[in-house]
């Protein structure tokens, strides 16, 4: 039954829709990541490895 179902699969719009969703999500998340107003946050984040902690005297 599965074999017949797969053989008769004729819905080209389905993979195309999936592709469209993938591309759309990727573009949205690209836009979101590269928004200019977040610059200070990324600048801060990239400095974290340099803060090993303040030594307690």
């Amino acid at each position: 039954m599965y074999k017949e179902a797969l053989e008769q699969f004729n819905k080209p719009w389905l993979p195309l829709t999936a592709l469209f969703i993938f591309v759309l999500v990727f573009l949205l998340y690209l836009y979101w990541t590269f928004k200019k107003e977040n610059k200070h946050i990324y600048d801060y984040s990239s400095q974290i490895p340099f803060e090993d902690g303040v030594k307690h005297e």
Binding site: T33, N38, Y42, S45, S46, Q47, P49, F50
Partner: peptide, 24 residues
């Protein structure tokens, strides 16, 4: 992402790219 910036004493080139890199 941790040791290269530490060894070079420079922050990662692009933190934004690291986000894209990770999820992709």
């Amino acid at each position: 992402y941790y040791f290269v910036p530490k060894a070079a004493n420079r922050p990662v080139y692009s933190y934004r790219l690291s986000i894209i890199h990770f999820w992709s």
